[in-house]
Design a binder for these strands. Sequence first.
DNA 1: CATGATCGGATAGTGGAACTATCTATTATG
DNA 2: CATAATAGATAGTTCCACTATCCGATCATG
Lengths: 212, 212
Amino acid sequence: MRMAELSAESGVPVATIKYYLREGLLPPGERTSPNQARYDREHVRRLKLVRALLDVGGLSIARVREVLDGIEEHDDIHKVLGTTQRALELTRIAVDEPTRDWAMDLLVKVAEERGWQLRPDNPVVESAVGTLGAFAALGRTELVERLAGYAELADQVATLDLAGVRGLPERETVVEAAVVGTVLGDALFAALRRLAQEHASATTWPTLPGRP
Amino acid sequence: MRMAELSAESGVPVATIKYYLREGLLPPGERTSPNQARYDREHVRRLKLVRALLDVGGLSIARVREVLDGIEEHDDIHKVLGTTQRALELTRIAVDEPTRDWAMDLLVKVAEERGWQLRPDNPVVESAVGTLGAFAALGRTELVERLAGYAELADQVATLDLAGVRGLPERETVVEAAVVGTVLGDALFAALRRLAQEHASATTWPTLPGRP
DNA sequence: CATGATCGGATAGTGGAACTATCTATTATG
DNA sequence: CATAATAGATAGTTCCACTATCCGATCATG
């Protein structure tokens, strides 16, 4: 397979493929002569993965490279997932000290309840605290009453997530499935949640009208 | 309150506030003379909302404007939520016809199971189909077996979401709470899901090592 | 009431990200 | 052998979210 075919197969323009090659998102093709190369299904597959991470996952080029490098090294699934989670760089919002402390306390309490262990260097903890802080800054503190409920549901979702990667044949498959599941999983669940919200909203307020 | 104080209060630079004013993300202050204006707590609050939508929600300036305009008009909570969901513009990925059909069939089946009604002009449906298509393109079709499970959990999450906005005093509060909940809720649940995944992963593969 | 800081508003500039286009020298193909 | 495609290098483009600079008016202070 040559460049033009790879482009046609994947739907990615030639110039863009060259850009991804330069950026290290796509391994170079197999050389057939000093300035010619050949590509295969693996390249098509990788290209689809890159587009999914970019378009669906909303990652930047630099983050995609980090994730892919993590898959490549694949010495420990936890490390790969750690890299992936870091690459997703959820939230980074500034919040004042008291709000931050409030949010951290809240999270610690819920985590204890669920048996989660929070390591302070975990960027996900930062994200969660930042998001909780943003809620608080907007006056939505009644969230507290529901947080434990969300945490319990998150546990159930995570169990389903794990079921999806358990029992896969090869370890590289496991790693890649975990990455895909992590990145695309958010987008999928968010969409399902919207549909469910619409349904719930329509049944709760069948024809809630204009002003009170 | 004048510009400098508004900036100090919100942590947003003066130049940026002016930019938001130009872009219509922040209503103009109350005129005290032809070229002076005064701002109040509402402006601080709005500014925090804007930053949350930008930083946590990851919306673009243009999308934030759409959402805010939706809140302003607030004639029907469903319309506001519709605008918000459109503004979140989840996924937009190209997928070939057969894959698309497969994904749509799958989604329709699950929606019927749950009593959700899918209107074809709903952009969320587009998102869901695109994401499912991306999974399929990457060979992760075993997702099918778990989709109904995710949908059920999405229903439960949505029920919790609704509980958070029900019983709020004023209707503008309801609308704003719904918007905040929709945008920040994704970020929060994604973070919780990560923490839960780490927990589940650590207990499933306590010390899963290098290569097989 | 003078004067220096701050203001609103207009306009222009900046830096990063993700491509996209052009060029050159080579290689493949009918 | 003529035409087209290729790899690789470099430069250019577009969009976005700011950021900086000016200007003339206004405020706050002594």
